[in-house]
């Protein structure tokens, strides 16, 4: 596997080297915790970030597979349209915001405003999420295996939110729905695909109360 040492390098240099190397199999990047926007806009290939990553990891990802062996900073997978991003540790504020597609899996905990304005991606957090997770989601799935903070799913417009644990408070425009067989099948598939030890039968599902909550 080709390795890029990002230590004291500029974003342009590291991402340039990464794009050049993608066709030759998986690329490993180390010492990247101070780089913001690592692996931006990839449309293919496989990247392993050894250690932790900075902010905006995999922003505008449109088909790359990115795995981080430790933690990630803010805005993981920002505006992703396709591909897979896996964080083996924790992720900070704003995982999977503005995504249209693809999958994000955080094995640890994720911060506030996770999956804000998700428009079609699958965002799975094996641990807990912070406050305001799922704000103004328009499509896609948010799956939280652990607990959620305040104002969970605030102003949900469309899309499905599943949670295994508890929330501190539920946001506006939300309603609880029971899981269908299809939901359970979908969650089982997600858990199996990403090696998560969770049982979907105890999960709760949150959907939008109204599709047009602001202007009538």
């Amino acid at each position: 596997m080709k390795t890029i040492d990002a230590k004291s390098k500029e974003l342009r240099e590291v991402n340039g080297a990464l794009r050049e190397s993608l066709n030759g199999g998986p690329v490993e990047i180390k010492n990247a915790e101070d780089l913001h926007g690592l692996a931006a806009g990839l449309n293919r290939g496989e990247v392993v970030v050894r250690g932790s990553a900075g902010d905006y990891l995999g922003v505008l990802n449109s088909g790359g597979t990115i795995r981080v062996t430790k933690n990630a900073g803010k805005y993981v997978a920002d505006n992703m349209t396709d591909g897979v991003i896996i964080i083996e540790g924790n992720a900070d504020y704003g995982v999977g915001q503005y995504c249209y597609g693809g999958t994000v899996v955080v094995h640890g905990n994720a911060g506030d405003f996770t999956a804000t304005m998700n428009k079609g991606a699958t965002i799975i957090v094996n641990g807990d999420v912070g406050d305001e997770a799922g704000t103004y989601m328009l499509a896609g799935d948010l799956v939280v295996v652990g607990n959620a903070g305040e104002n969970f799913a605030n102003y949900l417009i469309r899309g499905d939110i599943y949670i295994g644990g508890e929330w501190k408070s539920l946001g506006h425009n939300t309603k609880l729905k029971s899981l269908t067989k299809k939901d359970i099948g979908k969650l089982e598939k997600y858990f199996e695909a990403h090696g998560l030890d969770a049982d979907p039968t105890g999960f709760k599902k949150i959907v939008a109360a109204s599709e047009k909550p602001f202007y009538h």
Partner: peptide, 29 residues
Amino acid sequence: GIPVGSDALSPCRYYDVQTMDDMKHMVSF
């Protein structure tokens, strides 16, 4: 890429920018 008939209300600020450094990083990516 949004549902038919939904109000498309853009947020008043970037959910993915909290500091001036974030803004610089946004320009850089």
